[in-house]
Amino acid sequence: METVFTPWQSLGGGALIGVASVLLMASLGRIMGATGVLAGLLYPANWSDWSWRAAVLAGMVSAPLVISLLTGQMPAVQVPVSTPMLVIGGFIVGLGVTYGSGCTSGHGVCGMARLSPRSIAAVITFMITTGLTVYVVRHVIGG
């Protein structure tokens, strides 16, 4: 499936992700990471620890609706992946981010911005394995 190259839209979206990360640090003193938000919702330490994460999640989930109200259309979510592969992939992502204590937002944005050696190593590692996996799925198995 071909997709259109969108440098400006992607740069703007990325900048907003950055703004959210900075605001969360400025207000609550926390790392903006999707893995951390989810894990803290599933295994809360206490009410105040749970409630801010629930509010962040509610904000995230309402974003497509807000975009569709402003622009008249939902953001594109095209899934060129079969249901069994979504299930397998999702489960593997769950294992990986829990052991690796983070994903693209926590390590990839916040950790990289802090020049954390753990995050830089994590990002290099998952960029390589993601690239290899896409190559194998599309050009070795699928080709």
Binding site: M85, V93, G94, F126, T129
Partner: peptide
Amino acid sequence: GGSAVFGIGWGIAGFCPG
């Protein structure tokens, strides 16, 4: 190891948690 495994899942499904 966890990051390597995450990448495999991301490459299969195309979704990351964020």
